[in-house]
Design a protein around this nucleic acid. Structure first.
Lengths: 231, 231
DNA sequence: ATTTAATTATGTTTTTTAGCATATTTCTTA
DNA sequence: TAAGAAATATGCTAAAAAACATAATTAAAT
């Protein structure tokens, strides 16, 4: 973890949530916010630990996950300008998940007390945070149904589509820009690593995807959508 | 659905969330809030329908659930003074779950526009709603891990313990105050009805619970906790 | 460049859970 | 209260997923 404060555009130019801050608040925030760099696989915060900061990813990728019963569960994968750790700050309690850098990443981080002060004193900011949380809550509930009721093929297809929509594809228009190990794909899709490997290679045999090591190309998105939808 | 407005104590005497309203807001809310009665199994709102009201249960019980792939999933069971439908109002979009009366129930309901107006104009109220949502989000994420990673026995044990803690027991100190059909128990625990029945009767054979129709008595809470914890 | 470690691939076995069938009991309702 | 419907109980079968084993490939480190 390296501190790089001062090199990056102010946070209100990067994410509209922060545009509601007044001039006075902006000045105050400038003194309380840090730019921090994490190296690949470095822990950012841990489940159960008292929350101290919320953050916003500037560059790189971060995974938010929980340690389940013998198996990790990835809750979200962050892309630049996504916000994390804010729920625990609002609840004034411990984090309820782990965050670690998926690759070298740079973040803005703001102390809990300052974030909470902003939410308490600035109604528009509070309302913005609340709307963000409303979206996260809806996503969480949909995710629960998907993970519990779809079969393995449906869950894997859904994860692949999620990666397409969240991180996009390379210039060829079909290769996932996000290269992730099978283990992470499994942890996103609520299955064991060997089932992720096996099911992915079935998809390849069926011509739905092409595999080249960690590079996965989506050949038939329509069909994957159907598999995802029907469970 | 029957309208009974005027018979019940004002909402700010029933749930501390509403204590932050100013005198002016209270007067306004009095003109916009209704007391409504639903009969057993009546729908309160449906998934996908544009949100029009948020509500607070006054008496009775309400289930919040989603229609999964061929199977219902109960997300929460409400007890008096619990709030529902507020997430969709804040998101200014459709409900993402169904709500139906589990037994005859009376609720306060408030129009979306008025609720949103309160959240926008009253920072303390907004902050209270946000903290409630932070709690619901944490619960949802914990629930996902429980439902996806625990085995059937663990999931059922957890549901039984949840019923004890949420609704309590009768005078004998062990019989669940909440009598619910096996189907609902299954829908809470992410399993088929026949597996709920079977697993519950195994618990009875092992002396962990006693069954008398829908009346379930918890005989060995410690052991159920262990089963729940170990998956 | 070579060794070591990690990841990916694939086959087999075992466990877990869903699905189906049928009997019995308990509620509804006419 | 009698008939019908719904819910509960229990056994059996089939499907899905995990667990385990081992080989092949790829990445990392010296």
């Amino acid at each position: 973890m390296t501190n790089l404060t001062g090199e990056i555009a102010p946070i209100w130019e990067l994410n509209p949530l922060w545009e509601t801050l007044t001039e006075e608040e902006r000045t105050r925030v400038l003194g309380k916010i840090e730019v921090v760099q994490y190296t690949k696989n470095e822990m950012i915060h841990s489940d159960g630990e008292e929350s101290s900061h919320m953050g916003m990813l500037i560059s790189g990728k971060i995974r938010i996950y929980k340690e389940g019963i013998g198996q990790k569960q990835i809750i979200r994968l962050l892309k630049p300008y996504d916000v994390y750790g804010y729920r625990a700050c609002i609840a004034n309690g411990p984090y309820n998940s782990n965050a670690s850098a998926f690759e070298d990443s740079v973040v803005y981080r703001l102390q809990r007390d300052e974030f909470v002060r902003l939410a308490k004193e600035n109604g528009a900011f509070c309302y913005g945070v609340m709307r963000m949380m409303a979206r996260d809550l809806a996503i969480s509930e949909i995710r629960t149904v998907n993970l519990t009721q779809k079969h393995i093929r449906g869950r894997l297809a859904e994860s692949l589509l999620h990666l397409v929509h969240n991180y996009g594809v390379e210039e060829d228009g079909q290769t996932l820009a996000m290269l992730l190990p099978r283990e992470d794909l499994a942890n996103m899709s609520n299955m064991t690593t060997s089932n992720a490997i096996r099911t992915l290679s079935q998809f390849a045999q069926e011509g739905l995807v092409a595999i080249n090591g960690r590079r996965i190309s989506i050949l038939n998105e329509k069909e994957l959508e159907k598999i995802s939808r029907l469970g």
